[in-house]
């Protein structure tokens, strides 16, 4: 799964309106335009629906069956019992907990770190700005699996250098086995995720920073507001939309974390995430029914998170889209 997810356009509130057709022959023109619109956008829409809507419908259908891939003859309809099994299983809730933990920790740290990076880039000398921009993009562009291997090898007790470099820290020594228990494993996983995706957040926030009107900043400065006051009263409120959009997308992305877990721990020490659990039921255990139920629940969780963000926190995607 990609951790470098889609960037939503962060609202250019004043985006130019589409060129309006002249008001003559409105019905004919509108009809023609409607037809052309669907003709042009239709293929892309059809492809998107085909590669996602059909499989998720199939997954939902499969989740109603007791179905093992190697034993297709004994496939039988069991209704919602797969869901009952999943939802009453402590492992499912543990995975949800781990996933939420990773999500909350990484997104929180990324937001703070990304904001700092954005501030630096926003204010940095013109001369070093292109350099910073290029450098910051590199983690974003690196393949997640490669990043996971790099961090794993760095912390590995045999191949890594972390133990010898940080031996002066209490609790770290030549014998520290980072992947030996839950806490340290999750720590390394989060570190890898944060390294890789903070640049993405910082770029979105940088775009948000650019939207804060200079006039307001200057006015506040004239009024004698401290840096922190200006930040809290002027900068952050004015880039709320950008922050929320960045949060929404990173949260959804973090919730689907798979690659890093697969590479670094393979689920050892209770580090299974929901995506990993789904993978193990369907691909390793070959229990298509049970695995599909986990998949559908994962899908519903993602929808729920998106819904909470959009309705609860009032993330204005239409503004983000620029067509308000």
């Amino acid at each position: 799964m990609s951790t470098s997810t889609t960037a939503p356009p962060t609202g250019r509130t004043g985006a130019s309106a589409p060129a309006q057709a002249p008001k003559k022959h409105i019905s004919d023109r509108a009809k023609a335009e409607r037809k052309l619109g669907w003709l042009l956008a239709g293929p892309a829409l059809a492809v998107m629906l085909l590669v996602t809507a059909y499989p998720i419908a199939q997954a939902f259908y499969d989740s109603l069956f007791d179905y093992r891939l190697t034993d297709p003859e004994n496939r039988s309809f069991t209704g919602l019992s797969n869901y009952l099994v999943v939802l009453t299983d402590q492992l499912w809730w543990q995975s949800v907990g781990v996933t939420l933990l990773i999500t909350v920790v990484t997104v929180a740290v990324e937001l703070v770190l990304g904001f700092g990076l954005a501030l630096v880039m926003n204010k940095a000398l013109k001369a070093i700005r292109p350099f910073l921009r290029a450098v910051i993009l590199i983690p974003y562009a690196v393949i997640t699996v490669v990043s996971a291997f790099a961090w794993q090898f760095a912390f590995d007790i045999n191949t890594g250098f972390i133990n010898s470099w940080f031996a002066w820290l209490p609790g770290v020594g030549a014998d520290t086995d980072w992947f030996g228990d839950f806490g340290t494993s999750i720590f390394v996983v989060c570190l890898a995720e944060i390294w890789k995706t903070t640049p993405f957040i910082s770029l979105l926030l940088l775009a948000g920073l650019a939207q804060v009107p200079e006039v307001l900043q200057e006015a506040a400065q004239v009024d004698g507001a401290t840096w922190w006051q200006r930040m809290r009263r002027v900068t952050i409120p004015n880039m709320k939309a950008a922050i929320m959009v960045a949060l929404l997308f990173r949260t959804l992305d973090a919730f689907r974390v798979f690659d890093s877990i697969f590479v670094m721990t393979a689920g050892a020490n209770g580090t299974e995430t929901v995506s990993f659990l789904a993978y193990r039921q369907t691909i390793s255990r070959l229990e298509i029914g049970l695995g599909s139920a986990v998949s559908v629940l994962l899908f519903l969780s993602v929808v729920l998170i998106a819904f909470v963000f959009i309705k609860g926190f009032k993330v204005d995607l239409s503004q983000a889209r620029g067509d308000s």
Binding site: I157, N158, D175, T176, D177, F179, G180, D181, A268, N269
Partner: peptide, 14 residues
């Protein structure tokens, strides 16, 4: 060894 919980055939041999 300290990394018993991640020890595989190769690390044991090392």
């Amino acid at each position: 060894g300290p990394a018993l919980s991640t020890a595989n055939e190769d690390t044991t041999a090392t």
